[in-house]
Structure formats: structure tokens, C-alpha cells
Nucleic acid binder design. Structure first.
Lengths: 155, 155
DNA sequence: GCAATCCGGACCAAATCAGTACCCTTTAAG
DNA sequence: CTTAAAGGGTACTGATTTGGTCCGGATTGC
């Protein structure tokens, strides 16, 4: 369903939690406690983010993680790429003589690129700062519905 | 990787194959032969597309499928929705007292909606007619690279 | 009536992903 | 210098999803 992995969702939660804290470095354990996520999972996420340069890590006894850039200089596309790897909408066919006839139909592939670019642009347009914003523009009914936040909006 | 399912890719292949044929109805078997895809899979795709009103089906001895609308009146978002169901980028948490603390962090959810809308807009901007177009604007080197079309562009 | 086609399920196997655990390296405090 | 705390990396396992198949039934034209 074009849904991105749960880890990516968690990554946004963790990063927004870091924004809300003070400027000091955050340990994986403290972030796990603040977010309610399992500690090993948080550690894994932080490692992936640090590998892509979205986090600055400091090792040692008083170490921890810190955002490498300002929240509005990080966009959703970068986070997704760090966690889920490069985003390819289709794999078409990875091998040679797979289905797809004799790739005589695969000019279609070139057009998927167009779709990919459109999606990429959309994701780059939303920054981490946007995700951390209170967001709810509705002044009334901040929590009217019962505890069923559940699935995000459908396309 | 935010990649959409292979079935969606196939759906586009099948639909473009229908455009190239004459105006008459296409049977699932004939489309399977033309595309090189397994017949049961093609049948499944056609059923899904018909269920969402993208195809017009005609039963009986001389039955078959036909595009319900003109190719430029069908966009990629509709095809994806028909095959993969409503596109939710995140499930956040479907149940009640899952992780995510006590949903005190889940205002984030509202912002995923913003991302969803952006992606949806990007997908709605590409029509089936666009996907069926020869696509390659490069007059030179229509097939310079070896037979490694493989993965589509990464984000 | 017969044959061809669509229709709607259920079903199974394979791939992928989330989550966990383990061990190593690095760094700072005492 | 020693010790403890923290990140870094790898491998494994269970669960979820997905791709693909099959069957019986309904519908239409010949």
C-alpha cells in the first residue's frame, strides 16, 4: 500500500522527541523511555540515521546523539532514505529474461521515473520541523474521538 | 522502500496493452499472452480494476474487459488505489494501547496526513496516457546501456 | 443446451520486515 | 591506568504481507 515502514514512523517520533528536549545529547535509552519504544529498536534507528549524516553521535561515557542539522533543514525524504534505503517505487524486473516479455513493454519504466520524481519532490517539501509542529489547526475538538487514532489518512 | 507492489506495475502494463489494441474487448487470456504475464495474475488484476470502476467488464461467450474511461482520464493514483487499496503511508498504531506511549506523541499523525496529501497529488498528476507514451525524450541512445533496466529510479 | 467467459471467494508458498540479542570498539570519568 | 558507559556492527528469529494459484458458480452468446 505504498506504506513506508514502521521504523520510518518511529524515526520521526524519535527525532521530534529530540527537538523537544534540551540541547544536550540524548542517549538511546533516554529516548526509548521518552518515546515508549523498545530500546534496541531506538538504537537501531539512531544508528541508521547517524550513518546517513542526519545524526551526530558522540561516543564515550557521556556520549549520545544529537541532530546534525536544524529541524527545518531535514526533510522527510532524507529520513525515509536513511531508514528504508533508496526509494524505488517499482523494481520492474531485476534480472534479465524475466517476465515482462522481452522488455519490449518496459519503456513503461521510463515513466515510472517521472512518478518517482514527483513523489520525491512531495516528500522533500515536508521538513522535520513541519512534522514536529503541533499541527492541529482545528481549535475545537482537540480530542473528541475515542482512542482510535489508528491508520493515517488514505490516499 | 515505499515501493508499490508488483501487481500495480503489472496493472499499468496490462492497461497500456489494452490501449494499443483495437477498441474491442480484451479477454484475460489474450492480455496475458500479449504481456507475457501469468494468466491467473492478469485475471486477478482485471478483477481488481473492474471492482473500482476502472474497467468495464462484459460477461458471456464474447465477453472481455474494456477501459471504462479514456486513458487520460485515469491517473496513477487511481490504479494504485484499485490494486493496493487505500494508500496509507503509516499505520501509526492500529489498536489502542500499543506502543507510542499514550498517543501523547501521536499528534505527529496529523502531519503524516500532510505528507500523504502531497504524495497523492503527485500521483494524481500522472495519467495512464502519460505512462503509455513512448516517454523517451532522448533522441540519441535509445538503448545504449546493456540489458540492465532493473530497478527504477531511486528517490 | 452447450461452451466460453467473467466473478468471487479461499488457499498456499515465498519474500520481506520488525524486533531482539550478542559482541566489539571507542571514549571519558575516576 | 582502570573501569564503566555508550555507540557500532552483525546475525538470528518470528510474524506479517505479498504474489500467485485454484476452484466452483453465474452469465451470456451461439
Amino acid at each position: 500500500m505504498i506504506r513506508l515502514s514502521k521504523l520510518t514512523d518511529y524515526a520521526v517520533v524519535v527525532m521530534t522527541a529530540m527537538i523537544q528536549g534540551d540541547g544536550g545529547p540524548h542517549t538511546a535509552i533516554s529516548l526509548a523511555e521518552r518515546t515508549g519504544l523498545p530500546a534496541p529498536t531506538v538504537s537501531k534507528i539512531l544508528k541508521l540515521l547517524a550513518r546517513d549524516g542526519l545524526m551526530a553521535s558522540h561516543r564515550g561515557a557521556t556520549g549520545g546523539y544529537r541532530l546534525a542539522r536544524a529541524p527545518d533543514a531535514i526533510n522527510v525524504a532524507q529520513i525515509i532514505a536513511a531508514i528504508d534505503g533508496p526509494i524505488a517505487l517499482t523494481d520492474c524486473v531485476e534480472g534479465a529474461a524475466g517476465a515482462c516479455g522481452v522488455e519490449s513493454l518496459c519503456p513503461r519504466r521510463g515513466n515510472w521515473d517521472r512518478v518517482n520524481r514527483a513523489v520525491r519532490g512531495a516528500l522533500e517539501g515536508v521538513s522535520l520541523a513541519d512534522m514536529a509542529r503541533p499541527s492541529f489547526p482545528d481549535p475545537v475538538l482537540p480530542k473528541a474521538a475515542p482512542a482510535l487514532p489508528a491508520t493515517a489518512d488514505a490516499i
